[in-house]
Every structure is written in C-alpha cells, then in structure tokens.
C-alpha cells in the first residue's frame, strides 16, 4: 500500500481519538486522570468484543499510540495468555503484554525526577 496513504490513516485515526477526548474534557470537565482511565477501559472492552482490532488494522500507530491502545494491549495480552496457560493467564496476561511500557515509564520517570527540579510552567 502507498506509504503516504498509511500515514494519512495513522494521522486521521489518532487525531479522531484525541478529538473525542477533547470533547469529553470540554463538555464533561473530566480531569486528565479520569480521561485516561475512560480511554484505557474503553480500549480494553472494544478489544474484547473484537472492534479495536479493526481500528488497529486500519489506523496502525494511530490506534496503538493513544492510551486506548494500552487497553488494547492489555486485553489482547490476557486473551493470548489464557489461550496458552489457561486460568493462570488471567493473572499474567495483561501485565506481561505491557511490561516493557510500564517498566520504561517507571525508569524514565525516576531518572527524569532525579535530574530536574520543580518549575512553574
């Protein structure tokens, strides 16, 4: 497929997901933490009923980079692990699939904090 076309799709998908978030912020006054929670849970649910996979196929990074993609990774991970290990997979699945991202966030967060100091915008 034409590379430009892929990138347009990525841009469009990612943009739309963020736009939905913006409407939620402006209309409901949800705080950022709540917005993130809503998107993660929505992503996970949409994955479990098979919808988010289509969005990923269409928008690629446009669907995986937004935090709903984190929900997708969690839900997809747990389904794969349950297939492999049965009941134990319920416990290991989500975190195994997202381990790298969580570890990276903790590590970078810790070191960023060590080397910078509080500052006003």
């Amino acid at each position: 497929m034409d590379v430009l076309m892929i990138y347009l799709r990525v841009f469009f998908t990612g943009g739309i997901i963020c736009l939905i978030g913006q409407i939620l912020i402006d209309k409901t006054k949800l705080t950022p933490a709540r917005i993130l929670v809503v998107f993660v849970v929505t992503g996970a649910i949409l994955t479990s009923i098979g919808i988010y996979q289509h969005i990923i196929d269409f928008g690629k990074a446009g669907a995986s980079v937004p935090i709903s993609g984190f929900g997708y990774a969690l839900a997809k991970g747990v389904i794969t692990e349950v297939d492999k290990h049965g009941f134990l997979g319920i416990f290991t699945g989500g975190l195994v699939a997202t381990a790298a991202g969580v570890a990276a966030a903790i590590f970078f967060g810790y070191f960023a904090a060590l080397f910078s100091k509080p500052h006003i915008k």
Binding site: I25, K29, T31, P32, P118, H119, I120, K121
Partner: peptide, 20 residues
C-alpha cells in the same frame, strides 16, 4: 505561591493539561 498552591490543590506543574 502559585507553585505550592497548584501542587496542593490541582495537578503536578509539569503535567500537560489545559486551563479553562
């Protein structure tokens, strides 16, 4: 103080959120 009040009442200062 903006810095101390913000961190007590709202979000971290470097959090990228919009002001209404």
């Amino acid at each position: 103080h903006f810095g101390s009040a913000e961190r007590q009442f709202r979000l971290p200062l470097q959090q990228g959120s919009q002001r209404t």
